[in-house]
Write a protein that binds this DNA or RNA. Structure first.
Lengths: 249, 249
DNA sequence: CGCAGAATTGATACATCTCAAGCTGGGTGG
DNA sequence: CCACCCAGCTTGAGATGTATCAATTCTGCG
């Protein structure tokens, strides 16, 4: 059993799992969980590690348990576009596909709950709860991708930055279950270059626009990564979105 | 029974349906088809008509039978981004969602096979074949959306145009089951403005880049819409994609 | 301390947008 | 039958936003 560069996390019980109610297993009954438990194993990766390269054979699918990973596409000449940001409970891999379509990289230390692909596929056809949940999650991802297409195709650099900050702020708030009262405070999980790859910009433009938002009092920065948003509505104004948007799901 | 602006096409049998083997019903057995048949109805729309507005209540889901439709998002100030191109067999609507997230517009005359949403959802949980096929189609759409994100975020105007032409050419070839020998000939199903909305460009830039590709001998034009591609590899060179890309599915 | 990666800032180049003027082709009505 | 019209398209000239290239400046860490 070769332990390459990855660390192995302690296996723990699905019942205690932090993503139990949101991941692909969310709908499973106890007996279904037991079957999943038999084919699952945990894997840990260090920040910066690329877990999967586009074109690799994939013999597993997985859920992000903790940490953040990215999905990126790269062109021959090196231009890169991030096409997905994977947060805890998000699903990686495609049942029925043998080869990875994107690079998957850990931007923070990362723990994944992996399922061997073959048994997972068999389980999927026998337990509709898994397929149902996966469909729901895939539809959500498709909506997110389409919102991102609007951003990439039509928004200005400033709107792109504001949109990304708003998304991170909102997610962070929902994770902490914080009331939207008072200042929203969070850490950027991405470097400037990663933000650029996500937004279809250069890192210099990202840096300039963040500075501009800071000068205009929309955000405050403590260090490079720590962001304070005192007036969330003001930030939303900068995103270019409808004021009532984002409540469809 | 108010027949608004839409024409009603003659109802026909699923067995004769041109999209029978590719649509959401592709995996259904005869008995499942019978149930679907009971809740389906056809609807026709004229080119240019918007079938669904973002925010509308949706009481049905549907498959495109013939014709082409688009999914678009619009910002408050009128900036528009197309986020989907719906071809025969593609699925419209999201089970479990009450309200449309995008505008759906017919760019050609269009026939849709509609299912009342409630019964469709019930059928979905009782017949896994439908959910399975829908998952597969949604995953394909997600891949397409992600490829489009690369285009929107990182490709030049010329590469965007070449990519769109290549996609249309390829689809047309696969529809006609034509050998890739000789010239590929097709009609653009979109106006310059629609192409611009798809590509995140202005219509002027679309027009200029098409002219440039014509001057460079990559494509030939007969009229505004009819395109001849004598050397498909030369067109592919202009897309910026890997030469071996697009064979993952 | 000092190094290296990350980020900022500046000056300039350039791709695409914007605004504006004509062109084209097919349909319509006098 | 011709003149006109109009939507769709093309082309031009100039403006502008972002990329590119190039210095610095931070920041954390060995």
């Amino acid at each position: 059993m070769a332990v390459h560069h990855d660390m192995h996390a302690p296996v723990h019980d699905c019942a205690d799992c932090p993503i139990r109610h949101r991941a692909v297993c969310a709908r499973c009954e106890t007996d279904e969980l037991i079957k999943l438990e038999q084919i699952k194993y945990y894997r840990s990766y260090q920040a910066g590690q690329t877990l999967i390269w586009s074109g690799d054979r994939m013999d597993f699918v997985a859920s992000v348990v903790t940490g953040i990973a990215t999905l990126t596409q790269t062109m021959e000449d090196g231009r890169r576009q991030m096409v997905g940001l994977l947060l805890p409970s998000d699903f990686v891999g495609r049942p029925g596909r043998a080869v990875a379509a994107y690079d998957v990289t850990a931007t923070t230390d990362l723990v994944m709950c992996c399922f061997r692909k073959k048994p997972f596929e068999e389980l999927m056809s026998s337990t509709p709860h898994i397929a149902q949940r996966l469909l729901e999650m895939t539809l959500d991802e498709l909506d997110a991708a389409r919102e991102w297409m609007l951003l990439l195709g039509r928004k200005t650099a400033r709107e792109k930055i504001a949109s990304l900050l708003a998304i991170i702020a909102r997610r962070d708030a929902s994770l902490k279950l914080k009331a939207p009262k008072g200042a929203i405070v969070f850490d950027l999980p991405l470097t400037r270059e990663e933000m650029a790859d996500y937004l279809g910009l250069t890192l210099e433009t990202v840096s300039r626009q963040i500075s501009a938002l800071r000068k205009d009092g929309i955000i405050e920065l403590e260090g490079k990564r720590h962001v304070v948003v005192r007036n969330f509505d003001a930030l939303m104004e900068e995103t270019g979105d409808d004021s009532d948007g984002g409540f469809l799901v």
